[in-house]
Design a protein around this nucleic acid. Structure first.
Length: 432
RNA sequence: GGAGAGGUGGCCGAGUCUGGUUUAAGGCGUUCCGCUCGAAACGGGAUGUCCCCUAAAAAGGACCGGGGGUUCAAAUCCCUCCCUCUCUGCCA
């Protein structure tokens, strides 16, 4: 959420930004309501002041038993009170409209974000490693996974439906190993605090991180009295840990890491990257979230992306880092780096992590503040998050990049201690 | 799920029955000043968040879990929802 005061003073810049993002939002209407609200406030506060004074006076009259005076004041105050009630109602209406509008305005891109309308405008920042060189035609991960009997798409669909998968035997174990490997790396070497949050959150949390009210269609909502949702990413519970809090400067930066499954409706994405594990309704992810001081948030973003990259380096997987352009940037972000891992079967780079700075956009929505020093006013802090990494897609990358001609898959050395020393996945009919 | 007790400032805690002079007592903590060679103890002051108006302040308004109602007036009365605790049922 943007600051209404900032919009009030820089309406043209905000309009320009909205246009650049290809959005259609009526700023004038919001600003009009804002003006109306402030005018009404001035009037109603004067009346409330009056009410406070007269009420006190009535109290004093009552003490002395001056009933006639009380009666006179009471008649007058009835009018004042009704008028207050009327105006308060109008103000509330204004506030609802203002907030509805504000919640739909995207964040302002950082000056280092390239201008562009879609993915094509993204800029490659760096590459690491080299793609593997096979003397045979690379198989897809689905192919490899099903032959090895570690991935079962048919049964996943049987149990639930399309875009649900069953990991079996060493596949399940490798998934778990990857999660543990990444958690350990971030906890032991990058200084993150591990968290195991709820996988279901309430509506207010979803608004806090920006999934709602705009992206309801992407979410799984639970049926029941409460407005509960399955999390589409651990970003939601992690960022909302400090909702409605005022932290002190010594607390910052706070860095959390969590493994959670993620649930996404993927509405409207049918036929798009639908193969295998790439796009599922449920997938595992290790997520990194930071709460930082505003001055340091862009340095923290650089550190965050490095922490995520380290996973791929340790696994010796070729990747590139991309700076997303204005047209591809998410709603809440001011700047996002994607990490794209090399997939031999598609001979292309595929997103495996997305690391973003949100500045105070989420902090304002979720009311997360900090105090610079003793006695200083609370200020919104900056939040960041990034995948570190998406486990399903990492599985894809390992199966494809480490495949052998005979259909087996070598397990990267770093991972072996996480799968009881297994060095190779080989074809088997047994459910290991 | 059932029964009961609660939710008040950074924390503890009074106020709620009986609505008004509450500007939310008192304590703790924090911080500043005094005393002191220094510290402790002691004495004194300061110590919330948001909104509005401001160049800034002052003044003003709102906030006692959330929302609504009654009333000239609500921390206090009524309704409703949420949360916590105790007992209890079922249960991993």
């Amino acid at each position: 959420m943007l600051d209404i005061k900032m919009i009030r003073t820089n309406p043209d810049e905000v309009k320009k930004m909205i246009r650049a993002r290809g959005q259609d939002i009526d700023l004038e209407e919001i600003l009009g309501k804002d003006k109306e609200r402030r005018d009404l406030l001035i009037e109603v506060e004067r009346l409330k002041h009056e009410r406070n004074i007269v009420s006190k006076r009535i109290g004093e009259y009552k003490e002395r038993g001056r009933d006639r005076e009380i009666e006179i004041e009471r008649e007058y105050m009835k009018e004042v009170s009704n008028r207050i009630k009327e105006i308060d109602l109008k103000i509330k209406g204004c506030e609802e409209e203002i907030s509805r509008g504000l919640l739909m305005i995207p964040n302002i891109p950082h000056s280092t974000v390239p201008i562009g309308t879609d993915q094509g405008g993204n800029i490659e920042v760096r590459r690491w490693g080299t793609p593997p060189c096979f003397g045979f035609k690379a198989r897809s991960h689905e192919d490899i996974g099903e032959r090895l009997n570690i991935l079962d798409f048919t049964r996943g669909a049987k149990i639930t439906g399309t875009k649900f998968v069953l990991y079996k035997g060493l596949g399940a174990r490798l998934e778990r190993g990857l999660i543990n490997f990444m958690l350990d790396l971030h906890i032991r070497e990058h200084g993150y605090i591990e968290v195991f949050p709820p996988f279901i959150v309430n509506r207010d949390s979803m608004i806090g991180t920006g999934q709602l009210p705009k992206f309801e269609d992407d979410l799984f909502k639970l049926k029941g009295e409460e407005s509960y949702y399955l999390i589409p990413t651990a970003e939601v519970p992690l960022t909302n840990i400090h909702k409605d809090e005022i932290l002190s400067m010594e607390d910052l930066p706070i860095c959390y890491v969590a493994y959670t499954p993620c649930f996404r409706r993927e509405a409207g994405s049918h036929g798009k990257d639908t193969t295998g594990l790439i796009r599922q309704h449920q997938f595992d992810k290790v997520e990194l979230v930071k709460f930082v001081e505003p001055d340091s948030s862009y340095e923290e973003l650089e550190a965050l992306i490095k922490d995520a990259e380290e996973v791929l380096k340790r696994l010796n997987l070729h990747y590139r880092v991309v700076n997303l352009c204005t047209g591809d940037l998410g709603f809440c972000a001011t700047k996002t780096y994607d990490i794209e891992v090399w997939l031999p079967s598609q001979e292309t780079y595929r997103e495996i992590s997305s690391c973003s700075n949100f500045e105070d956009f989420q902090a304002r929505r979720a009311r997360i503040r900090y105090r610079k020093g003793l006695g200083s006013r609370p200020e919104y802090l900056h939040t960041l998050n990034g995948s570190g990494l998406a486990v399903g897609r990492l599985m894809v990358a390992i199966l494809e990049n480490y495949q052998e001609e005979d259909g087996s898959v070598t397990i990267p050395e770093t991972l072996r201690s996480y799968v009881d020393g297994v060095e190779k996945l080989t074809k088997t009919n047994k459910l290991l």
